[in-house]
Amino acid sequence: MNAPILRVDDLSVEFATREGAVRAVRNVGLEVFAGRTLALLGESGSGKSVTAQAIMGLLDTPPASITSGSIMFEGTDLVTAVERVRRQVNGEGVAMVFQDALSALNPVYTVGHQISELLRVRRKMSRSAARARAVELMERVRIPAAARRVDDYPHQFSGGMRQRIMIALAVALNPRVLIADEPTTALDVTVQAQIMELLTELQRENGMGMVLITHDLGVVAEVADDVTVMYAGRIVERGSVEELFEHAAHPYTRGLLRSMPRTDREDDELWAIPGAPPSPVLTPKGCAFHPRCDIAIDLCRSEQPGLEVIAAGRTSACHLRAEVFDGRA
């Protein structure tokens, strides 16, 4: 494999709150390769979206602050980069698709204006060339009658069509990395499938690296190449999608996989992980997952396990990683 386009190392993000500093992301590292999709899998409060916001430079500082780590994109550390460089990278280097297109698009401008404005400012295109390119982009994301709809406002589109427009905006400057934060969560099932297909198609075409942030194991299984599982701000497990689904090396991943309801079976009792994800304000001592873990031992209650290699390309942050990995625990 070649060198990663984007490399995050030891990233930690804190939020200042009235109850003290909340460590939302703790020592997270990840690598994004051209043409590959990395799924960042986690539930609410896992730190997956904060990680994405840190990469995009979208954190409000304060209350947020990056307390450690680097985000390397083509030799530049985005954590320390000056504003001008940072802005250059956004859109052309790394671009993002958000969950909620209705709030990500500006309601008072036509969608054509929003796409062409980006092209005029960043690509110095003329008004007419930018507009023509906007129509092309809308056609590319398969918006029917794009030439006519370019002058419509966001509210005039359905949820799925708005999501397509946001994707058109995100790929307008041919980014090398696309971060998609729950891109289909707010959409209907049949529309979800269309959007995921569009994203993977654009990725193949442009050779982009993709970071897919999601809580949906089904979507991960369909499109990801590599998976990083996050829990309570930390990475708990990493691996290729096939291996991770077949041999989970962390009890949390294993529990998630077992608790997923399937359409091809009738289970009278679903497998459930007890309890709920911890609040970032009050993360349990030791391994953050231990209160919900079915195999926790005393060590798990006192000591935070490190993220260690268990097999080629596989890491797990569990004191019993070997036992979980080969099915002994």
């Binding site: 269309q194 949906d216 194991l217 089904g218």
Partner: peptide
């Protein structure tokens, strides 16, 4: 179509899976 749109939680063999996707909303 609704059933086929549900992602299958098994990565192995995904490339060879065919499914009919509905167009539009």
């Amino acid at each position: 179509a609704l059933l086929e749109a549900v992602p299958v939680p098994e990565p192995r063999g995904r490339a060879s899976r065919a499914r009919t996707l509905l167009a539009g909303d």
